[in-house]
């Protein structure tokens, strides 16, 4: 069970973000929750592609004694994490822009006072 400790860290991050998304009423705090969930997913991808005692998949001045396929971490999850980070930045910018727009239109950030509930 102690070997699954990184997965438990991932789940803890996702649960914290889910709590902020479900129980908070402020839009900025909900965005913070979404960002924490995103960090958890990135950590999950990186954790999934790790082999015990491995180095990064870069061949420039490799440490001596590294076995070529077995001694290297997976490159594909790292590339997907790179994609995920850039997409996260783009989505975060778009969400914050829409929140600024909402604040200027309604004068509040409380989700209970925005929209249908008059």
């Amino acid at each position: 069970m102690i070997f699954n400790f990184p997965f438990i860290a991932v789940i803890a991050l996702i649960i914290i973000g889910l709590y902020a998304m479900v129980f908070r009423k402020n839009l900025i705090k909900m965005v913070i929750g979404i960002t924490i969930i995103q960090s958890g997913v990135n950590l999950f991808l990186i954790t999934l592609g790790y082999r015990e005692g491995s180095v990064a998949p870069i061949f420039t001045s490799l440490p001596s004694g590294t076995e070529i396929p077995q001694g290297m971490a997976f490159p594909v999850p790292q590339a997907l994490t790179l994609t995920s980070i850039v997409i996260g930045v783009a989505v975060l910018a778009l969400m914050l822009s829409l929140i600024i727009h909402i604040y200027r239109h309604y004068g509040t950030l409380d989700v209970r006072k925005i929209g249908g509930e008059k």
Binding site: F3, N4, F7, I11, I14, T47, G49, P69, P75, V76
Partner: peptide, 26 residues
């Protein structure tokens, strides 16, 4: 649900299916 699924993952550092990544690294 998430906590139980985290306990049922493979052990950290020992992934099972490694064919695609080994092919790419080689």
């Amino acid at each position: 649900f998430l906590f139980i699924s985290s306990l049922m993952m493979h052990p950290f550092g020992n992934p099972e299916k490694t064919n695609m990544d080994d092919e790419i690294i080689e």
